[in-house]
C-alpha cells in the first residue's frame, strides 16, 4: 500500500515538473469537425516553422468554436459557414470553399432534380421516387443534425425551415451521410462534394446530382459555378494575440494551399 502511495506521488510530481518546463506559447483552436483535420495539419506545419509556439486543435462543431472564442477559452475558432447577423462581434477570415452536393444511391435511375423537387422531397410532399419518374421505391430523407453548418447552408439555398423537413434519418458528419445513403437504395442526402468525390472514387455506391445543370464537382466549386457552396472560416474575438495573428497570416497564405486541397476543399485565390 505504501508503495502505491509513493507511486501516485511520483506521478503527480512528474506532471508538475513537466508543466513547469512548458516555455512555448500555447495557441488553442476549437470548432468545426469538418475543418479540424485541415487545421491540425496546418498547425503541424506551422509548429515546424515556428518552434516557439504550440498549437492545440480541438474539434466539437462550429457552434462550439464560436462559444469558445466568445468565452475566451480558444484563441481562434473554426466555423464552416458564413457569419450570421448576431455574430458581428467576431472577426471572420475566409479559409477555403466547400461545395455541398445532393447524393442518392448509385442504382437510383434519377439523373437530376431541380430545387423545387428537392424541397418537395425534404418536406415530405413527394414520398416515392416513382412520382419523379424513378423506380417504385419509397424515399428515405437523410437530414443533418441541428447545429451542423451543412444543414444551415442547405436550408438557406432551398429556402426551407428545419421544422418543416420530415427526415427519416438524422446524421452528423459527412462520412456518416455517405455511408447511410450507400446502404439504402431509396435514400437522398447532402454532403460535402469533396468527401463524396473521394467516396465515389473508392467505389462507394452513391452518386452526386447536378444542380441547375452544373455538375457537382470540386472543379465547379473552385470556378464558382456550382451554386450550393459554403466558405470555411476562422474566427477570432475583437482583440488578437500576437501568436494568433502570426498563425492566421500563415493559415491564410498560399503556403498551405496544398494542405487545403489534400482535405478536398478549395483554396481561395487572394
Amino acid at each position: 500500500m505504501l508503495r502505491l502511495i509513493f507511486c501516485l506521488n511520483l506521478v503527480w510530481l512528474l506532471a508538475g515538473c513537466d508543466a513547469a518546463d512548458h516555455a512555448r506559447e500555447k495557441l488553442v483552436i476549437t470548432g468545426s469537425s469538418t475543418i479540424a483535420p485541415l487545421i491540425a495539419d496546418i498547425a503541424r506545419r506551422f509548429e515546424s516553422q515556428h518552434a516557439e509556439y504550440q498549437v492545440d486543435v480541438q474539434s466539437g462543431g462550429s457552434s462550439r468554436g464560436i462559444a469558445d472564442v466568445r468565452r475566451g477559452v480558444a484563441h481562434i475558432g473554426m466555423v464552416s459557414r458564413g457569419p450570421d447577423s448576431d455574430e458581428q462581434d467576431l472577426q471572420w477570415y475566409a479559409l477555403a470553399r466547400d461545395g455541398i452536393g445532393m447524393i442518392i444511391h448509385q442504382q437510383n435511375t434519377i439523373a437530376a432534380l431541380n430545387a423545387a423537387q428537392i424541397a418537395d422531397i425534404f418536406t415530405g410532399r413527394i414520398m416515392d421516387w416513382q412520382t419523379l419518374g424513378g423506380p417504385a421505391q419509397k424515399i428515405t430523407v437523410v437530414n443533418k443534425a441541428e447545429g451542423r453548418s451543412t444543414l444551415e447552408v442547405f436550408l438557406k439555398f432551398f429556402a426551407l425551415k428545419n421544422s418543416t423537413i420530415k427526415p427519416q434519418v438524422i446524421i452528423g458528419e459527412n462520412q456518416q451521410g455517405i455511408k447511410t445513403v450507400a446502404g439504402n437504395i431509396g435514400a437522398i442526402g447532402y454532403v460535402s462534394i469533396g468527401s463524396a468525390e473521394v467516396a465515389i472514387a473508392e467505389g462507394t455506391a452513391i452518386k452526386l446530382l447536378p444542380m441547375n445543370g452544373v455538375a457537382a464537382s470540386v472543379d465547379n466549386v473552385r470556378n464558382g459555378s456550382f451554386p450550393i457552396a459554403r466558405t470555411l472560416h476562422l474566427i477570432t474575438g475583437a482583440k488578437l494575440t500576437a501568436a494568433a495573428r502570426i498563425f492566421l497570416d500563415f493559415a491564410l497564405s498560399p503556403a498551405v494551399h496544398d494542405l487545403i486541397e489534400a482535405q478536398y476543399f478549395v483554396p481561395l485565390q487572394r
Binding site: T34, P37, S59, E173, N174, Q175, V198, E202
Partner: peptide
Amino acid sequence: PESLLDSGRTLSVHIYDLAMNVSG
C-alpha cells in the same frame, strides 16, 4: 504528449475521426 497536462488523442477518438471526418 510531453506531460500529463498536454492534450492528446486516444485511439477511439482517432478511429472515430478517421471514419467520420476524414475522407479516405
